[in-house]
């Protein structure tokens, strides 16, 4: 009961902070799981679970109107259940994924409900009532925070025994498979990040970053610095039709690697 209330409050407050402070990333698993670990008395597991879940959920971000799986609920409940049942990152992952997928539709409902608020917002705008607009804006946010509290509270209060039984009955072979899948899942995230950015003309830069790590084992920060220098050279230093050089290279590479 206590845990249900505390975790519910954590999720609600984190979401409130996230949207009151301009999306500072406090609802990412690396933060959420750590806080829940600290509150449940197992900070170490919380941090480790956060690291695992962050990798898997990296690509699930809300860009534009598309609603991704709900990482806050997934990481929050996955971590809680894993710690309560005395398990670690693997179990947290196995639970967080389906929970995040299930919770996805809750956000959609909130977005629809808040669409109804907009008529009211237009009326307030017509009266130049700025206090009313701000209040309405925060009320919309509180509605979503309350939803998160409720979901976590109900899920933990009624779900923990069922979840525990479920976790203890996962066969070993499936657990191994989940571990392999856990290693593959970041690929989905990276592909999602690439989707709006990458095309035939610039896939070369992606391959360059990949090869610098694969062959030279450079740290990611180092590769970033190379990228900044390269971008500066290409964008500001080279004049005229520099695009042609990269384009011919690109087609060569692509024939080799395009699946």
């Amino acid at each position: 009961m206590q845990i249900a209330i505390i975790v519910g409050l954590i999720l609600a407050i984190l979401w409130f902070i996230e949207k009151m402070l301009g999306t500072p990333m406090v609802i990412r698993p690396i933060v959420v799981s750590t806080i829940i670990g600290a509150v449940l008395g197992d900070l170490q597991t919380g941090i480790l679970v956060g690291a695992t879940l962050e990798l898997v959920f990296m690509g699930f971000i809300q860009v534009g109107g598309a609603v991704p799986p709900d990482v806050l609920v997934g990481a929050g409940l996955g971590t809680t259940f894993a710690i309560m049942s005395g398990n670690g990152a693997d179990v947290a992952l196995a639970l967080a994924l389906p929970i995040a997928l299930l919770a996805q539709s809750l956000k959609v409902i909130v977005f629809i409900v808040r669409s109804w608020f907009m008529d009211f917002a237009m009326r307030l705008a017509k009266e130049a009532n700025i206090k009313g607009l701000i209040t309405l804006n925060i009320a919309g946010l509180l509605l979503q925070s309350a939803m998160y509290f409720l979901v976590a509270f109900v899920a933990i209060l009624f779900g923990s025994t069922a979840v525990e039984a479920f976790v203890n009955n996962i066969p070993e072979a499936i657990k191994n498979g989940l571990e392999v899948a856990g290693g593959l899942l970041p690929a989905v995230g990276f592909a999602l990040l690439l989707l709006p950015m990458m095309n035939k003309n610039n896939i070369l830069y992606f391959l360059l970053g990949f090869a610098l790590f694969a062959y030279l084992n450079l740290p990611v920060l180092g590769i970033t610095l190379f990228g900044v220098v390269l971008a500066f050279i290409i964008v500001f230093e080279m004049k005229g039709k520099q695009g042609e050089v990269t384009e011919t290279n690109t087609t060569d590479e692509e024939d080799l690697f395009d699946v």
């Binding site: 990458m198 970053g209 990949f210 610098l212 590769i223 970033t224 964008v235």
Partner: peptide, 25 residues
């Protein structure tokens, strides 16, 4: 357009490096 192009280049290289270091198969 220049900033956009530059950001894309850096972004692609970083995502390339990150997928190399984090996707396990």
């Amino acid at each position: 357009q220049k900033i956009s192009k530059g950001a894309t280049i850096v972004g692609l290289m970083v995502i390339g490096a990150m997928s190399a270091s984090m996707v396990k198969l």
